[in-house]
Design a protein around this nucleic acid. Sequence first.
DNA 1: ACCCTTTTTGTCCGTATTTACAGAAACGTA
DNA 2: TACGTTTCTGTAAATACGGACAAAAAGGGT
Lengths: 134, 134
Amino acid sequence: MNKTMTESRGPAFSSLTGLDMSHIRLCPAIAFNQILNGRYKLHILCVLYGGPRRYGEIGRSLLHGSLNRPITPRILSRELKQMEERGLITRKAYPVVPKRVEYSLTERGRALVPVLAEIIRWGSSGVHEEILGV
Amino acid sequence: MNKTMTESRGPAFSSLTGLDMSHIRLCPAIAFNQILNGRYKLHILCVLYGGPRRYGEIGRSLLHGSLNRPITPRILSRELKQMEERGLITRKAYPVVPKRVEYSLTERGRALVPVLAEIIRWGSSGVHEEILGV
DNA sequence: ACCCTTTTTGTCCGTATTTACAGAAACGTA
DNA sequence: TACGTTTCTGTAAATACGGACAAAAAGGGT
């Protein structure tokens, strides 16, 4: 193979869904983990599927990987901000003391729910724990 | 919030699937992008869904992100090896010259197909291109 | 002996992401 | 005025990831 590989054919993942993807120029699979990068975004979506949640609630419901490794506020803040920028969640701040901020799913975020559901279904067999040797 | 957040409740993503997850200790969503890290693994799974593929075929069918940025052999090799280590794909080398190596999905890899399908379905509306501003 | 193909590795480097740690803002309450 | 709570930011260090580049293995063909 050459030093770098290039491709001429357009994307055609037909067989997976049977859907016409001819109008799509960017592979959804690659876009997916570009949009959902960072370690906690998928989990945050899961949490918010249960309804609006406060910053602290999300943080507390978040486990770090497998163990009880906690998430630091710095990271949670960044993840939430990125997700807001991408239109997956909305942020609503209440003018009270102590501060109260609630995050919830947008339409765009809800569009990912079927994917989340499949991931949970996939995990219900425990394969992910096997693979990671938990 | 404290400097670090910890959590006492077990995972409960019940509402998403209606499945009993009490026996699961690690959040599938977090495990998912720990197992499918790297930029190309999801895409590689899609390609291999079409049947066994050679190293060069996979490389050629892989676009880098959105543009025609090519993947370097070094990276493809690493991705494939990691996926093999995690039991998602198998590697079969034929004793011929020039070398011929074929990769294919394992049971474990096939278990992810429903997730892939949902991701493609999600992308069929073009949301991912909107979000990334392609 | 040298070149060709295909697959793969070694090494190095720059960037991106994660993490730790400290601290700020906002304001009611003691 | 000091304190507490909640949300969030600044800074710097640590680690992971992506990519460039060269090169090796394994023979067949010329």
